[in-house]
């Protein structure tokens, strides 16, 4: 008896839901998100830069979305972030309750056929970006006399790296191939903090990692000028490193220039996206909310505490960088693959 009553209620609920009209106006968006959760997927383990950023973002995002949904962060580490990308693109709900803040390499993995990407970077519904990472090759000064890439062509320098497939290995390997440097790259360290510790021990002399890592984890090394940065990869020189050349400035020909520009463009590396197929009104509302959140003073204050620099990018800018990356000339692509070690 009691059971049939429950069943009737449940059925009525399901039926009601089926009849809910999908009218396209702001109220509909607000009605939709009221009482719902938005899940932000992060493709790396908790504790790192991307995860912390997502958590700070989650704290402020909900109040900018119509209907004020609860925003939670879900970690889905695996395959260098591709597991989460594949999941959100293909399997996550396409009703605007799942979003992803992918880590770097969204387009690079597709172009270089790294791993098993099952997504099209240009078909994600990008909401915008919060900045551009800057990758730097840095050495601890007291471990080596090398002060420039040119010095590094004359003398061996020992670098740490995560794995042979990681960009921390591929980039210095490419410098060896194209610029004649003599980096001895030791792969196998499980994460940036392990490489930095190995530097502190003198086991390695430097590595190619993100500038943000130095800023947040070793600010005293930056402050006390203990590091030398040989090259930086970003659209423009970072204000912290005005004297370190951009990779593109070292290009010897046009192909190299195109390659280096591709490698140092990071506009898609700190972005946020919806899977394809989310209703347009909700996607638009989320884009607005995203842009409002990263400009929100309270958000910025929290981000600053964590030493994140926000530099807002529009959805169009992010999408444009994806398109540009995928439009690379095939000759350049071949050369790039070769320079990165032919994988």
């Amino acid at each position: 008896m009691r059971f049939s009553k429950f069943a009737a209620t449940a059925l009525a609920g399901v039926a009601l839901a089926g009849f809910m009209p999908a009218t396209a106006n702001a109220d509909a968006v607000s009605d939709f998100y009221k009482g719902r959760n938005i899940t932000i997927f992060v493709g790396l383990s908790p504790g790192g830069l991307y995860s912390t950023w997502a958590q700070i973002f989650a704290k402020h995002f909900g109040k900018h979305v119509p209907g004020n949904p609860t925003v939670i962060v879900k970690h889905m580490p695996g395959a260098g972030g591709q597991k989460a990308l594949n999941y959100v693109y293909n399997a996550a709900p396409k009703d605007g309750t799942a979003i992803i803040t992918p880590n770097s390499g969204v387009a690079r993995n597709v172009i270089l056929k790294r791993g098993n990407p099952k997504y099209d970077p240009t078909k994600f519904r990008w909401l915008g970006g919060w900045g551009e990472p800057s990758t730097v090759l840095s050495l601890l000064k007291h471990l080596t006399p090398v002060r420039s890439l040119k010095d590094a062509t004359k003398q061996q320098v020992i670098l740490g790296a995560i794995s042979k497939s990681s960009i921390t290995y591929l980039l210095p390997a490419m410098y060896n191939n194209l610029l004649g440097t003599k980096f001895k790259i030791i792969a196998g360290y499980k994460g940036g903090s392990k490489v930095r510790l190995a530097m502190e021990k003198g086991e390695v002399q430097g590595w190619s990692g993100q500038l943000a890592g130095w800023v947040s984890r070793k600010p005293e090394w930056l402050r006390d000028d203990k590091l030398v940065h040989l090259v930086q990869l970003s659209s423009k020189r970072s204000p912290i490193l005005p004297n370190t050349p951009l990779l593109s400035e070292l290009a010897k020909n046009d192909t190299q220039k195109e390659m280096f520009n591709f490698l140092q463009s990071g506009k898609g590396d700190r972005a946020t996206a919806l899977p394809p197929g989310v209703p347009a009104d909700r996607a638009m509302a989320l884009e607005k909310a995203y842009q409002a959140t990263i400009r929100d003073a309270a958000f910025q204050a929290d981000a600053k505490k964590r030493k994140f620099k926000t530099d807002p990018l529009t959805a169009a800018e992010v999408l444009g960088s994806m398109k540009q990356a995928l439009a690379m000339k095939s000759a350049t692509l071949m050369a790039l693959k070769k320079a990165l070690g032919g994988k």
Partner: peptide
């Protein structure tokens, strides 16, 4: 001592330190 997490849990804890403006290391 180094800001090097001994485990993933410690990595999270480290994240929490940083949010609260506690910088691991010599300080």
């Amino acid at each position: 001592a180094f800001g090097v997490p001994g485990s993933v849990s410690m990595a999270l804890l480290l994240g929490a330190f940083l949010i609260h403006d506690i910088n691991p290391g010599p300080d």
